[in-house]
């Protein structure tokens, strides 16, 4: 496994001593670099939103600041594809996946951190090594199994195979390892059983880690692409990422509506980001990448 990136906490940045060498000029150069990087990062997103708001006769304008705004493109999207339905599908899928992956990871990480049992290291290794199995390697048997259950084109097909996340298990296991044993002993002396210790002592104390894990799981579920692509057939049952691709294939050159649809698909996550950006960045960085 990777060194679990434990040393990557962005917090405690000491307020810097007066920099010698690079000095003031270095700082200006640094600002220029970071501004350039920010523009590179933001411009495409900005352009998506600007294009989506341009009226049809103005769509090919390359003026950086829009002169007139209209919601025409959004209305077009609303009336040509079941976008509300797809957003609802995506939201349902993301909530279901977040809750189930959180729950299964809590239970599983608790078992690994709390007890020694036969084959525990081996089983933990099975979780740690799942990232070595690329999705493309398991797709055919999984597809065959899903279709033999008759689940193609349903929410079940998307959610069930990802009911648990090995990534969430490993991450929570790291937090549980560091949990103070005294608290558990105190609870046991008070007569709590294993189940109560988990839900009354550990989970409330891990609220912060669980919340940041939940955010990560939600975002990666929302942006999920490959598996929904395989098991979806109709626009009505598609999550928004797949709906977008279908829309692109059908209406490849309707740039205004396409950008409006892309904005629809990104808006929930972007809003979440605006509100929670600090927590989101930190949880992404603490956990490596997803």
């Amino acid at each position: 496994m990777f060194p679990s990136s434990t040393k990557l906490e962005p917090a405690n940045i000491k307020t810097s001593d007066t920099p010698s060498g690079f000095g003031g000029v270095g700082n200006i150069a640094g600002h220029v670099l970071l501004i350039a990087l920010s523009v590179l990062a933001l411009f495409p997103v900005y352009w998506m939103i600007v294009t989506s708001l341009r009226p049809a006769n103005d769509i090919f304008s390359s003026s950086l600041i829009p002169t007139s705004a209209s919601l025409e493109n959004y209305r077009t999207v609303w009336s040509t594809i079941p976008i509300a339905r797809m957003l609802l599908n995506t939201f349902t899928m993301s909530v279901l996946l977040t809750l189930s992956q959180l729950l299964t990871a809590i239970l599983c990480a608790y078992a690994f951190a709390r007890w020694t049992f036969f084959a525990d290291k081996f089983l933990l290794g099975l979780f740690a090594l799942t990232w070595l199995v690329p999705f493309q390697v398991t797709m055919i048997p999984n597809y065959v199994l899903i279709s033999s259950f008759g689940w193609l084109d349903t929410m079940t097909a998307i959610v069930v195979p990802q009911f648990a996340s090995a990534f969430a298990v490993m991450l929570l296991f790291q937090s549980l390892k560091a949990f103070p044993p005294e608290l558990i002993d105190a609870a046991r002396i008070d007569g709590a059983n294993d189940w109560l210790i988990l839900w009354r002592v550990i989970v409330p104390n891990l609220r912060a880690s669980l919340a940041s894990l939940a955010i990560l799981l939600f975002i990666s579920a929302w942006n999920e692409y490959f598996w929904p692509l395989l098991v979806t057939r109709n626009l009505e049952n598609a999550v928004v990422q797949i709906g977008l691709q279908m829309f692109l294939t059908q209406e490849g050159d309707l740039w205004g509506p396409l950008m409006a649809a892309a904005t629809f698909a990104s808006l929930p996550i972007l809003l979440l980001y605006v509100v929670l950006q600090k927590q989101i960045i930190e949880s992404f960085m603490k956990s490596g990448i997803r």
Partner: peptide, 29 residues
């Protein structure tokens, strides 16, 4: 590395935005 404080936080928030975007959206843009 010497850029600290408020400016640093703003840059952090901005350069991280692409990580939030779904691959399909990125491709279409």
């Amino acid at each position: 590395e010497h850029i600290q404080g408020r400016a640093r936080n703003i840059y952090r928030a901005l350069v991280f935005v692409p990580m939030m975007m779904a691959p399909v959206v990125v491709a279409i843009i």
